[in-house]
Amino acid sequence: MSIEILERNMPDTASASRVSSYGDVKMHARNVSAFFGKLQALHDVSLDVAANGVLAIIGPSGCGKSTFLRCLNRMHEVAGGTVSGTVLLDGEDIYQTDAVLVRKRVGMVFQKPNPFPTMSIFDNVAIGLRLNGGVPRNQLKETVERSLKQAALWDEVKDTLDKSGVSLSGGQQQRLCIARTLAVNPEVILMDEPASALDPIATAKIEELIYELKRDYTIVIVTHNMQQAARVSDRTAFLYLGRLVEFDDTKKIFTNPSKKQTEEYITGRFG
């Protein structure tokens, strides 16, 4: 594939590595199958994740959406699962590299907000930088501020950065987790039903955020809320029982899907 050639033509600056034109492939999954012991949860899923866009993965409960997402940052194996197939990030196989390095570039926001309870808001955001080390204090402060601003949380917490991470409301905690992910400067952000534990107002804020973030990052979002997928994403993949049924532009999927199964799911006939 000509992915590598395309990418090499981009200028060599930090921001440029993220701002590639929409349509360039950032991540490529080929024949990905995932197992929990003997149980097969994903069957030969292949798709491309376009740079600087939002890919939504939809499907009924248990169809393997979260499992697939976790294959993209090697979190599936943390729960003891195994993966076969290939996943490329900018042309490099993430399963041939150390998982720690992969996760620095592919971040994840979880369904239930999970800020570290023993740390302050500041420390929660700074933790990723501290682990990777060698960051002087003032740069730390700058990065924390930038990340919190990007996550649209700065104004609400700028005076209370010392308070515990769990002292915030659910929606705020989720934005804190997003800020934490942004602080390590990933290229891809995976979101596993980020708003499902939140109330409608908080959900709207998260969706706004996604729209802002896609300028600089590549986003893959798993959601069981079809309207949300239609609102925020550029492309959509429909998974059913561990198989990829259809993968296309969001507009097409929701207005004129090619497969019957997709149509039935969209119109609520099952799921």
Partner: peptide
């Protein structure tokens, strides 16, 4: 809770 472990691993902790 397991979510704590996942949170730290997801940001690239060893």
């Amino acid at each position: 809770p397991q979510s704590q472990r996942e949170a730290s691993l997801a940001i690239g902790a060893t």
